[in-house]
């Protein structure tokens, strides 16, 4: 293996790792705020990537049906809750967010699809299609279980993953798709050939991370999310609604999933069920980083990207096995250093 190959693999590893890092951050955020192990994060990636490719082909992506249908279902839950609490005043807001907004985006996508706009415009439409799915999913599947144990929420996540994967198969079919690149440019950086696409991936990831950091340290809502993660009871006592934090964290997760999907669409062939594996690699990164610290999770995810890139060169058939076995040494170490008996909440 010569230096060129090494540098090429490093470049590949870093751009994959940057995406895993974004996912790891989203997973940690959702877990800290809602205690949900958000496995369906992966489906956002697949939905976004496949929607982008379908828009490029001038077709209406099936995501619109999931979005509008999910929105109606969420609205139904809200209306039922509002009737029970006799709080009709909040209905207009509910309808605007869960019914009108998805419908508007769906109409936009339907209008834009055959017109084959620029890739950047299509990416924005994809974000519009996928991001609202976060709060919608939270409302339908998780909010009714707000005080359930981590274990129950995890099982629900797997169930949601099932349902979304199945819907993905229904609306996108079983074929793998790959989108056109945002740019085919290549340039030389010293001895390395750097593709503009991988620069874009890293740049976008860093930008999103920076934006998240600003959000969490500067805005009151960002701090409210952190407060909920640190102390749930305290958050309720200062009037931060649990549903707001849940919804907001799922919105961020969906945004990150959608961005990752758009970024990954040109560099890999995506099938309806590929998102699951990509999302889980984000989890592996988060576990490598100890499931608590955001910077460590990002580093762990970067390590996953590099490991994957090098193992696909050395032993491509065993790439997945190697990546998913990587958590074992970390678990051994953590298990040797932890001594503690704790009770799960009832």
């Amino acid at each position: 293996m010569n230096l060129d190959t090494v540098l090429w693999l490093v470049q590949d590893g870093i751009s994959n790792g940057a995406i895993y890092a974004l996912l790891a951050l989203a997973l940690l955020l959702v877990f800290a705020v809602t205690r949900v192990i958000f496995v369906p994060q992966g489906e956002f990636i697949a939905y976004a990537a496949l929607s982008l490719t379908m828009l490029q082909a001038g077709q209406l992506p099936g995501t619109v049906y999931v979005l509008v249908g999910g929105g109606l279902l969420a609205a139904a839950y809200e209306i039922a809750a509002a009737l029970r609490a006799r709080a009709g005043a909040r209905l207009p807001r509910v309808l605007a967010f869960y019914v009108l907004l998805p419908a508007a985006i769906a109409v936009l996508a339907w209008w834009a699809a055959p017109r084959k706009f620029d890739l950047w415009v299509q990416a924005l439409i994809v974000l519009g299609l996928v991001v609202p799915l976060g709060p919608i999913l939270y409302r339908i599947a998780y909010q009714p279980l707000a005080n359930a144990s981590v274990v129950v929420l995890f099982i629900v996540s797997m169930a949601v993953h099932y349902a979304l994967t199945g819907l993905g198969l229904l609306f996108f079919g079983g074929e793998g798709l790959r989108s056109a690149a945002f740019s085919d440019a290549q340039f030389k950086l010293g001895v390395v050939n750097v593709t503009a696409q991988s620069v874009l991936v890293v740049l976008a990831s860093v930008l999103v991370m920076l934006a998240l950091w600003l959000f969490f340290t500067r805005s009151l809502y960002g701090k409210a999310l952190r407060a909920t993660a640190v102390n749930r009871v305290g958050a309720r006592l200062v009037g931060i609604p649990a549903e707001l934090s849940g919804s907001l964290s799922f919105l961020l997760a969906a945004f990150i999933g959608a961005v990752s999907g758009v970024l990954v669409a040109p560099i890999a062939t995506i099938y309806y069920d590929t998102g699951f594996l990509i999302g889980l690699k984000g989890f592996v990164g988060a576990i490598l980083g100890g499931m608590a610290s955001y910077p460590l999770a990002a580093l762990g995810a970067l390590a996953v990207g590099l490991l994957e890139s090098f193992s696909s060169f050395w032993a491509s058939a065993f790439k997945e096995t190697i990546v998913f076995t990587a958590i074992i040494p970390v678990l051994v170490w953590r298990s040797l250093t932890s001594r503690h008996v704790e009770d799960e909440e009832e």
């Binding site: 009151l220 701090k223 409210a224 952190r226 640190v230 102390n231 009871v233 958050a235 200062v238």
Partner: peptide, 30 residues
């Protein structure tokens, strides 16, 4: 809380990983 009903709980329930000032700011969240 928005109607002015507030509780200082027995266990305080502060946001331990946030600064003192952020804790106070969040008190005015509603």
């Amino acid at each position: 809380v928005a109607r002015g009903l507030c509780l200082v709980p027995e266990r305080r329930e502060l946001f331990g990983e946030l600064s003192v000032e952020d804790n106070l700011r969040l008190g005015a969240f509603q």
